[in-house]
Design a protein around this nucleic acid. Structure first.
Lengths: 113, 113
DNA sequence: ATTATAGTTCGAGAATTGTCGCACGGTCAA
DNA sequence: TTGACCGTGCGACAATTCTCGAACTATAAT
């Protein structure tokens, strides 16, 4: 009956080690890149080819580490970066990671575009 | 006979996902913090209470991910941050991580000082 | 109400990572 | 040379993490 709800850690509760771990996974790092470019997106757009349970796994990990905010929208769910929260907690961190990821063509920077 | 040598990735080879993973481990993150504060240090100082093989495991991972430079000094080994290399590859990343770690007392920020 | 769709949970298995004892080779002092 | 010390590599085990199918719940359309 109750509509889907999601738990999000408070800003003070966000731990840097967990954030770094969340961003250290290529799939998740690419998701974060998309979120930074596109704003709030439908979760399915973050991994159209992934099994749903795998997608849920990664989005949940990003949410529980404090990187993203998840919101139920009808039967799908919308995801956006917690950019301001992250910047308040760890100033500049997200920006430098994303800038660094841009210049890292060794991982998967542009071969798939 | 040959003195101990260590392989270090070139600057261009340093991958951001691997760096973030290396920094996502509390033990290793604390080692990096010490290195940032103290410059080049004896490896033993990074984990006096750790089993040697465990210490080697973590220092090797930091070295292979491009975070630290390791040098044999007699029978011990000296370790220092590759600060300039990291900054050339991913500008500002290390600084923001260290700054963020400083303000993160939830992990182990100051309870042990 | 029925059907279809989307996300979640649970479980199992594979893969990766962390921990640590132990033997080995290199280094230094006596 | 002998012996103590330090780091490394190996191997085994524990702990985490990743992947993904299947059953389930909620939502929307017919």
């Amino acid at each position: 009956m109750p509509p889907r709800t999601y738990h999000h850690p408070d800003v003070e509760e966000i731990a840097i080690a967990r954030v770094l771990f969340a961003l250290s996974e290529p799939l998740r790092l690419n998701m974060v890149k998309m979120l930074a470019e596109q704003g709030e997106v439908d979760s399915i757009d973050l991994g159209p080819d992934l099994p749903r349970s795998t997608l849920t796994h990664h989005t949940s990990l990003l949410r529980e580490s404090g990187v993203v905010f998840v919101r139920a929208e009808g039967r799908k769910c919308m995801i956006k970066l917690r950019g301001e929260d992250l910047d308040a907690r760890f100033p500049g961190l997200l920006g430098t990671v994303l800038t660094g990821y841009e210049s890292d063509d060794g991982d998967r920077g542009e071969a798939n575009v």
